[in-house]
């Protein structure tokens, strides 16, 4: 390759990188990578993702470099003469079989380790049964007698109608907001048992790193443990095509402190004062803790 071609190549590469940089700086445009998340597992998954990504980049630099070098250096228009004797090389074949195998083994080891941790559902502290319906979620806090449906919030539901005339930008958390979020405590190993009533759905909250199918007749499980201090609202969506309104059954998880969780749970139980959106019987003796927490948390 001539010096001229080489510098042209470098200039092109920088132009591409330089052109992308201002885009990435912009807030919405910069939303291009997997979320790090708020659980130990989601962080491990993110770092696994980045590790494989950089391996791919490294292999890509090598392979694409090789291709580009060949395309530039061996141009017929530059008088390149073919070396027709070069037809095979057992040595080269062995090298480019063995090296990828080694790289794959290096990738597989941390992946297997993380996978084993993901599948370890021992010592969970809370179990919640999640049932997928067309097109909403049902949450059942096992052993607590607290259960409710969680559907797309009304503002989003109105805006998402065909030719509604409502600008989605004007709706807060468009399509990612629900009437009754799932409430879970921080720093607690929560087990989610998944099933479905009608068709297959999938429960996915990216910040927890996990996605699993909710299948009629099957019970799947996943777990997450939100790190201490990471209270807040986390949003996700159904991830398995489940019919007409598949795009309109979001998941919102409200992570609260353990104390807040206990108070919330007590307020939800039948017999406690009526929380706004769940249908429990109004009771005379209102639990004193209810006021500490808004009954119908909104995103």
């Amino acid at each position: 390759m001539t010096r001229h071609a080489r510098s042209a190549l470098a200039a092109a590469a920088f132009a591409i990188l330089g052109g992308l940089a201002p885009l990435a700086a912009h807030a919405e445009w910069g939303n291009v990578n997997m979320t790090v998340g708020v659980t130990e597992l989601s962080k491990e998954i993110h770092s696994l993702h980045m590790t494989i990504f950089w391996w791919c980049v490294a292999i890509g630099v090598f392979v694409f470099g090789w291709m580009i070098w060949s395309l530039v250096a061996f141009r017929k228009s530059q008088g390149a003469k073919p070396d027709t004797t070069m037809t095979h090389s057992t040595k080269a074949e062995i090298i480019w079989t063995v090296i990828p195998v080694v790289i794959l083994v290096i990738m597989a080891i941390p992946a297997a380790r993380t996978l084993i941790a993901i599948e370890d559902t021992r010592n969970t502290e809370i179990s919640i049964k999640v049932t997928g319906y067309q097109w909403k979620w049902h949450y059942d806090y096992l052993g607590e007698d607290v259960k409710f449906f969680s559907s797309l919030a009304r503002a989003s539901d109105e805006a998402r109608q065909l030719k509604s005339g409502v600008n989605p930008e004007s709706v807060e958390n468009y399509l990612l907001d629900v009437d009754n979020p799932l409430v879970v405590p921080e720093d607690t190993k929560v087990r989610v048992l998944l099933t479905a009533q009608d068709v297959i759905h999938a429960w996915w909250v990216p910040a927890f790193g996990m996605k699993k199918d909710a299948i009629p007749g099957n019970v799947n499980e996943l777990w997450f443990k939100v790190e201490k201090g990471k209270t807040g609202l986390y949003r996700g969506q159904c991830a398995e095509l489940c019919g007409r309104d598949h795009g309109f059954m979001p998941i919102v998880v409200k992570v609260v402190t353990k104390d807040e969780y206990r108070a919330w749970l007590a307020a939800q139980k039948p017999g406690a004062a009526a929380p706004a959106d769940t249908t429990s019987e109004p009771a005379a003796d209102a639990a004193p803790t209810v006021a500490a927490l808004p009954a119908a948390p909104r995103g």
Partner: peptide, 14 residues
């Protein structure tokens, strides 16, 4: 290749 890595696939899937 990235999709083959099961834990990461839990994020990529669908």
């Amino acid at each position: 290749l990235m999709l083959a890595i099961v834990p990461a696939d839990f994020q990529y899937h669908d």
